[in-house]
Design a protein around this nucleic acid. Structure first.
Length: 766
DNA sequence: ATAGGGTTAACC
DNA sequence: GGTTAACCCTAT
């Protein structure tokens, strides 16, 4: 098994682009410039197709060149230079390179037949490998359900299926190629580049912004000035030397592929080219270093000497496996290395075993690609497919852009957005949302179980990073998600039994509870009304204030007990799950404030019968928890005043509904004989400032009407007289409120203001 | 914090 | 249905 070195993933898109450009008959100068620009290092097997395609393009260019200058170069037949289709383009190009006339050579010294090259290029065209992108396009275009429809749709290839599905490049006629080599069937993909003739292309090779290519341009221009074909050949040779730089980056590929060169002096001669006075080609030092040194090769497949070869690396690659086996195993390695997926079945040799790889859904589309291509028997395509797998993985890691996961993540977001809206929707709509949520989760389960479960059959992998290790396993029965704690992004949540629930399940659970709670809400509301009426009946029929206070105290104590009950560990544990879900959702902007709805859902999670008080107590508790400290202080003060003054109830919770005090106050009002009837109207009106926590599902409860007592009115008038300013129209209601603090019971500055308005309305002279 | 308009429910 | 008192909402 060939050792896999960690390489920079940034080289992959370069290779893919070069392949595609080489397939689309881009100018060779541009190709060679791109080759030189490939960043980082990569495996020797990577870029194999790219090299082949680029070399073929150069050979094609060379043959065109020779065709146009047939009278001067490569005209002498040489049986030794005939090429076989089994030769790779790179080898042939090296041979051609070795036989190119030097600047100080006469053309008659050439031993290369241009016809050989032309024939080779023509014949080779039919068996050139497709570029990775073309293959991917073919797979997408095929009616294969291995590629998700969404991916197909995104590819834009559903309607324009131009691919024949063959593993080799589309055939073109020789005349087409040689008459107009730069305008091929894929020229439209390179529409921005002007179409040029072959001679133009190679006498004035276009060089873009790629810095290193500028030299080529200058060389070309200089060569063109000479008007000789030899400089043109040197140009081609030089371009090939650029290709060699690709080889160097690929760790001794040169050593593996260097061809035999019988002309032992050719190297020195070539080197001398640069130093020949008056030579038309000027090479920079860098380019000189780029020149492939004299290949002293004894065996095409064995390591040979080369000045540019990294011997250490070459040594590790002396024996290259057969391409089939090697690539098949390479595929396996890459899949394990990059995707951490497990191979379910694998034979020991390449074509026959037909790798059956089950990947996670994030790479499932590419999995099919890999499988297809492997079975297709093209070992090279395995690499392409493997790269696609890597690429897919990158996609999945960097935004879920193209993988099926992205679609599902979109569904997640969509679902959650809808769930966020759930509180404003009808039950039917909520049911629909729940169905959608369940459907989504089921799909998640099915995918997960189909992939992850299978994958995890022998190895447990994190659902995020696809790496094993210490994983948290979701405790839900139907969920097999596992994740590293560090991959969670948020703190993991556990229930009372320290069972972990993944965010999906926690959220699903919260949604379910919310739905259940909503169904119980009407019953709870009805029970609440019944309870209040019953309590009011008792109040009305009681003549003993202290007894009522005891009743209130008992009632409040009961609520407090429920408070305590809520804080019991098991209940806290349950809430932790929900909190985790909320936290998780808060991290997702689209559902950020859905947490409050779920919290409210939790708050109304209560039974219909015995939990009528629960709703009220929750309102109280939340009011307590959510109120600002100042508010609490103020209200608590009022409560304290009221209870101390009128009820002598000392053990009340600091803040509770104003019913006790109001009831007492109502009785005081009743005792004053002013508004006796008002005591029977106990509509629940909760002031905004006193209960910031609202319940959308509950009707806006109105604060109980509290008629003003004579004492209150007098205190108000006194306060106005004392603090009203003739100059300032603003009335210091706060000061007045504090002034009559002992008299005003459960009044706010707004109440004072409103009451004063009513007083003024009734008797403006006041 | 305050003012002012609006709303609601009880009462006539 | 009109009136009224208490409460609510919003602008400043």
């Amino acid at each position: 098994m060939a050792p896999i070195r960690r390489r920079e993933p940034t080289s992959r898109p370069w290779i893919a682009a070069i392949e595609a450009l080489a397939s689309s008959e881009t100018d060779t100068s541009l190709l060679t410039d791109l080759v030189k620009k490939i960043p980082g290092e990569f495996r020797e097997d990577e870029g194999k197709n790219a090299r082949e395609l680029v070399c073929w393009r150069i050979l094609e260019s060379l043959s065109l060149l020779q065709k146009g200058n047939s009278s001067t170069t490569l005209s002498k037949p040489d049986s030794s230079a005939r090429f076989s289709l089994s030769d790779c383009c790179e080898d042939v190009l090296r041979k051609v390179q070795c036989r190119l006339p030097r600047a100080n050579q006469k053309s008659t010294e050439s031993v290369m037949s241009g016809r050989d090259v032309e024939a080779f290029v023509r014949d080779k065209r039919s068996c050139l490998p497709k570029s990775g992108l073309e293959k991917l396009k073919d797979v997408i275009s095929k009616e294969s359900d291995l590629i998700p429809f969404s991916v197909k749709e995104m590819s834009g290839l559903l309607k324009n299926n131009r691919s024949d599905g063959n593993a080799t490049r589309p055939q073109r006629s020789a005349s087409d190629t040689f008459e107009n080599p730069l305008v091929g069937d894929l020229s439209s993909e390179n529409a921005t580049r002007p179409q040029r003739s072959a001679s133009d292309a190679f006498e004035n090779p276009p060089v873009g912004d790629l810095s290193s290519g500028k030299t080529v341009m200058s060389d070309s221009a200089t060569a063109n000035q000479g008007g000789s074909s030899a400089p043109n050949q040197l140009l081609v040779y030089k371009e090939y030397s650029n290709i060699a730089s690709l080889n160097r980056k690929q760790d001794a590929f040169c050593a593996q592929k260097v061809v035999e060169c019988k002309d032992s002096d050719s190297f020195n001669e070539r080197r001398n080219v640069d130093h020949v006075p008056g030579t038309v080609v000027q090479h920079s030092g860098r380019e000189e270093s780029d020149l492939p040194r004299e290949p002293r090769v004894e065996n095409l497949r064995e390591i040979t000497t080369s000045d540019n070869v990294d011997y250490d690396r070459v040594a590790s690659k002396k024996l290259k496996m057969s391409s089939t086996v090697g690539d098949a195993e390479l595929l396996h390695n890459q899949l394990q290395d990059a995707c951490n997926i497990e191979k379910i079945t694998q034979g020991t040799s390449g074509k026959e075993h037909g790798l059956n790889i089950r990947a996670d859904e994030s790479i499932k589309d590419c999995e099919g690609f890999v499988e297809l291509e492997t079975r297709g028997g093209s070992a090279r395509f395995v690499n392409q497919g493997t790269k696609s797998v890597d690429g897919s993985r990158e996609n999945s890691e960097h935004g879920f852009s193209l993988t099926p996961n992205s679609v599902r993540c979109g569904e997640v977001k969509d679902t959650m957005e809808h769930d966020h809206q759930a509180e404003f929707l009808s039950d039917d709509e909520n049911d629909e949302i729940l169905i959608r949520n369940n459907t989504f989760l089921n799909s998640q389960y099915s995918h997960s179980q189909d992939s992850l479960a299978t994958l995890n059959g022998t190895k447990k992998l994190c659902m995020v990073c696809k790496i094993g290790g210490q994983l948290l396993v979701c405790s839900s029965v139907s969920c097999q998600r596992m994740v590293h704690e560090k991959c969670m992004g948020v703190a993991p949540t556990f229930d009372a039994a320290r069972s972990f629930y993944c965010p999906f399940c926690a959220y699903s659970q919260a949604i379910s509870e919310y739905s259940e709670s909503k169904k119980k809400l009407p019953l709870a509301r009805k029970a609440l009304v019944t309870f209040i009426n019953r309590d009011e009946y008792r109040v009305r029929n009681s003549s003993n204030i202290s007894h009522r206070a005891d009743q209130n105290y008992l009632k409040e104590s009961k609520l407090c007990n429920e408070c305590v009950e809520q804080n019991r560990p098991e209940n806290v544990g349950r809430r932790e799950i929900e909190n985790s879900s909320r936290k998780y959702m808060r991290d997702m902007p689209s559902v950020s404030h859905d947490s409050s709805s779920r919290e409210r859902a939790r708050d109304v999670t209560c039974g219909a019968n015995e939990e009528d008080q629960y709703v009220a107590s929750q309102a109280v508790q939340d009011s307590v928890l959510q109120n600002s400290k100042s508010k609490d202080k103020k209200i608590a003060h009022k409560q304290h005043v009221g209870t101390e003054k009128e009820q002598d109830v000392s053990n009340q919770p600091p803040v509770l509904p104003c019913e006790p005090a109001k009831t007492t106050h109502s009785n005081l009002a009743k005792s004053s004989g002013k508004k006796k009837k008002s005591v029977t109207h106990l509509s629940l009106r909760v002031r905004k400032g006193e209960q910031q926590y609202t319940y959308p599902s509950l009707p806006q409860l109105k604060r109980k009407k509290i008629p003003w007592s004579n004492a209150e009115e007098e205190a108000l008038k006194e306060g106005v007289r004392k603090f009203a300013s003739n100059h300032d129209r603003l009335m210091p209601w706060k000061t007045i409120l504090e002034f009559g603090g002992d008299i005003f019971v459960n009044r706010t500055t707004i109440d004072l203001k409103d009451k004063w308005r009513n007083i003024c309305k009734a008797s403006p002279k006041v």
